[in-house]
């Protein structure tokens, strides 16, 4: 792949992650554990879909097609982004893992030589600080209680290694050409350190020793994807000309 193609793939993977997580978060609209959380999650879902839209717009003028119309194997989302989190524990944990990763990913693009990407990254990173603040505040408060620890620790330890897929894929030539200021491997290290530091506050440890997942980046969809995708395109399938 040329650096241009690699950059396009990187942006596509990021956009697909944002689309899947935005759609997944929206599952909690009106059924969040309490009203403020319901509102916050809904807003974060909206932001993630906005980020997906901005990234897709770098790749295509036909946003509906690129977001919804591709064959499943052409999506590049990580499996953790596709994961249906229909219990609040995994929804909150994925929110924190995802947004900490997002913060690192945008930071690597802030001064990109791909100027439009840098502009989007600057705007998105500003929104992201609120997501991270929200997720960490809630997670820390819950982990400070025995029941919170009981409910959250095993999910955190289980899902954290799956989050490494956020940094999977090729970045060949992208640091040299200035598209990224930090390699995916270095971004991943920064993210893992943040998770380790966070969990250390609560005397928890993640076992990072397994093989990091990367299948999603190469076209293999997780079991949850088709359910998620069916939900995304439900209206479109009833009425292909539907408009808001």
């Amino acid at each position: 792949m040329s650096p241009d193609e690699t950059a396009n793939e990187l942006v596509l993977a990021f956009a697909d992650d944002e689309l899947c997580v935005g759609q997944n978060h929206s599952w909690w609209i009106a059924v969040g554990p309490f009203l403020e959380e319901d509102l916050a999650f809904t807003s974060i879902a909206q932001d993630e879909l906005g980020h997906a839209r901005a990234l897709y717009s770098l790749l295509s003028d036909d946003l509906d097609h690129i977001a919804y119309g591709r064959p499943h194997q052409e999506y590049r989302s990580s499996h953790i982004a596709e994961l249906l989190c229909h219990d609040w524990t995994s929804a909150l944990v994925r929110h924190v893992l995802h947004d900490l990763a997002e913060e690192v990913r945008w930071a690597a693009m802030l001064d990109s030589t791909w100027v439009e990407l840098a502009t989007i990254a600057t705007r998105a990173a500003a929104e992201e600080q609120f997501h991270v603040q929200h997720g960490l505040t809630l997670l820390r408060r819950l982990l400070s209680t025995p029941e919170g620890q009981l409910r959250l620790s095993s999910t955190l330890i289980d899902l954290a290694p799956k989050g490494r897929e956020y940094f999977a894929g090729s970045d060949s030539g992208l640091v040299t050409s200035g598209i990224l200021n930090t390699s995916l491997a270095d971004q991943e290290r920064t993210w893992m350190k943040r998770i380790d530091d966070l969990l250390a506050e609560f005397e928890l440890n993640v076992d990072w020793s397994g093989e990091p997942p990367s299948q999603g980046r190469y076209g293999t969809r997780s079991r949850d994807f088709s359910t998620l995708h069916d939900e995304m395109v439900a209206v479109l399938q009833i009425d292909p000309l539907a408009n808001w």
Partner: peptide
């Protein structure tokens, strides 16, 4: 905001 749903309107 980037994801403002009112943009199309």
């Amino acid at each position: 905001i980037m994801g403002c749903p009112a943009l199309d309107v």
